[in-house]
């Protein structure tokens, strides 16, 4: 069970949120210039790390705003909450056990 700290509403039960999956996947500037493999990489391939995961959450049943979360996929511990559009935090432990 996750207790997620919405930047606007404070700590709330996981059931109030929707998970938007991996964060920081930038849409290619020129999609038509990509090969099929590059397009597939953008569309379907995921990091799916065992360790720290940067992901998007939306407070659907609250303020309905999106934000980024850094969370361990091993312990479920949330280590950082930061705004949409903010760069991924530099962290050596990304994806590490």
């Amino acid at each position: 069970m996750l207790l997620i700290e919405c930047p606007w509403c404070g700590p709330r039960d996981e059931a109030e949120f929707a998970c938007g999956g991996e964060a920081h996947i930038a849409r290619p500037a020129e999609p038509a210039a990509l090969s099929d493999a590059e397009w597939a990489d953008y569309l379907f391939m995921r990091k799916n790390p065992k360790g720290l995961h940067r992901e998007r959450w939306c407070h659907t049943l609250g303020c309905r705003r999106w934000f980024n979360v850094e969370r361990s996929t091993i312990t479920h511990e949330i280590t950082r909450i930061y705004a949409m559009g903010e760069a991924a935090p530099a962290n050596e432990n990304e994806g590490e056990a």
Binding site: M1, L2, A15, A18, R71
Partner: peptide, 13 residues
Amino acid sequence: DVFNSYAQRGSLP
């Protein structure tokens, strides 16, 4: 459960 995990457990909801 909606989130990624390797923890072999999920949430109560």
